Amino acid sequence: RPLSCPNHEGKTMEFYCEACETAMCGECRAGEHREHGTVLLRDV
Rank of each mutant, 00 (worst) to 15 (best):
A19T: 12
E35R: 04
V39P: 13
E9P: 09
S4M: 12
L3I: 15
M13R: 11
M13C: 09
A23W: 06
G31E: 09
A30G: 11
E14T: 04
S4P: 10
R34P: 10
A19S: 11
C25Q: 05
H8Q: 06
A30T: 11
S4K: 11
E27S: 07
G37L: 06
L41M: 15
R1H: 00
C28W: 01
F15H: 13
N7R: 14
C5S: 00
L40C: 14
C17D: 07
M13W: 05
E32G: 04
G37I: 13
V44N: 02
C5I: 00
G31I: 10
A23K: 12
L41R: 13
S4W: 02
H33E: 04
T38G: 05
A30Y: 05
R34K: 11
V39H: 05
G26P: 13
C5W: 00
K11A: 09
P2S: 15
C17M: 00
G31S: 08
R34Y: 08
N7T: 15
T12S: 10
H33G: 03
H36A: 03
C5D: 00
R1D: 11
G31Q: 14
G10H: 09
C17Y: 06
R34I: 15
E27H: 07
N7P: 02
L40Y: 13
T22C: 09
Y16D: 01
E27Y: 03
R34S: 13
E14N: 01
G31H: 00
C20S: 01
A30M: 13
A23Q: 15
E18Q: 09
C17Q: 01
M13D: 05
H36D: 02
M13G: 07
M24S: 04
E32Q: 09
R29I: 10
H33N: 03
V44F: 12
C28Q: 03
F15L: 06
P6V: 10
H36I: 00
R34A: 12
T22M: 09
L3T: 14
C20V: 02
G37M: 03
P6F: 09
H8F: 01
R42K: 14
V39I: 02
S4L: 05
E18L: 05
D43R: 04
L40N: 03
L3K: 08
A19K: 11
L41V: 06
E14C: 08
F15E: 04
M24G: 05
R1V: 14
P6R: 13
Y16C: 03
S4G: 06
C17L: 00
M24E: 07
V39L: 08
P6I: 08
A30R: 11
